[in-house]
Design a protein around this nucleic acid. Structure first.
Lengths: 160, 160
DNA sequence: AGGAGCTATTAGGCCAGCCTAACTTTTACC
DNA sequence: GGTAAAAGTTAGGCTGGCCTAATAGCTCCT
């Protein structure tokens, strides 16, 4: 019981969970469309996950998470949510980018760091140190310094 | 001039830079040892980078960054440093894990997020909002709540 | 100078993931 | 109920990255 999955396999699992949470049946085509891959790729991946006991699937049928698969998928989703919230709520990263980054990071960040991140989110929200809202302060500070730096634009727009 | 490299190629490049910064010649074996791969793997990677114009190398010779390779490698290293500092200094992640995570993340985090992260680091250090040191406060708060939660251990030690 | 031993390269194989093309099954509609 | 379209699978090929085994080149020491 410690399935170690590649990032891609985790993505398949998470996608199946998401479809499931929306109340739909996970079909190969649907998964393919969401992940932007072709159906044969999904067929292969599903077979892989089936062999690992994480999904149930008979040919031409729907794909369903097993008990264990669901646990793994939920863990991935949790990690995604945590990272997304941090990027959005603390760093103020634009929504689209926060989603993309969270989706990449969810597979590779250590448990330890995630736990710390979770604590940090809690911390800035409960904000047990008084009136100051750290996040708001950060946003204000960024805006102010952005203005002040108007002249010397740092290396924000990097050469491409 | 916008070489897009895989994470692995970036790692090779960064490793060569590091050896260089230590004042040594980058030899295939040295790179292999540092990255924990075999020499043939390095041979292949170096050839790859040479074809992209990022390193110079003639057979049985040393590997040296080109002008452009150096720029890319420095960028990667910068990203690593930034992430490492954030993990260590803000989140308080243990050193070894911070290094590992930074090394993974350096290749996959968006420029936007890195810029935000950089600003955040600046922010918590300049700490323009008064006496409170956010990081110290965070550490204290974690310790306090850790204690308070002694009974219900959360899900810290995850099943393995 | 010549051979031992280290360093490096080439050759060839494996795995994960993706693709297209071709085939099969299911579905849905007339 | 038969047939066309959609969904799914199988086959085969590609890339990146790693490995081992075998070969080739360097270096150094006697």
């Amino acid at each position: 019981m410690d399935v170690h999955l590649t990032p891609n396999m985790e993505m398949y699992l998470k996608t199946i969970l998401e479809i499931d949470l929306e109340g739909s049946e996970a079909r190969v085509k649907m998964i393919a469309d969401r992940l932007g891959v072709t159906m044969p790729s999904v067929s292969g991946a599903v077979d892989n996950l089936r062999k690992k006991g994480l999904v149930g699937h008979n040919p031409y049928g729907k794909v369903a998470l097993t008990e264990e698969g669901r646990i793994v998928a939920l863990k991935v989703k949790e990690q995604n949510d945590l990272l997304y919230r941090f990027l959005r709520e603390v760093l103020g990263v634009p929504d689209r980018i926060a989603k993309e980054d969270a989706c990449t990071l969810e597979h590779v960040v250590s448990r330890t760091t995630l736990n710390r991140l979770s604590r940090f989110l809690e911390f800035v929200q409960v904000c047990p140190l008084g009136p100051g809202d750290i996040v708001a302060d950060f946003v204000n500070w960024v805006n102010e310094t952005d203005q002040a730096r108007g002249a010397q634009p740092q290396q924000e727009r990097t050469a491409s």
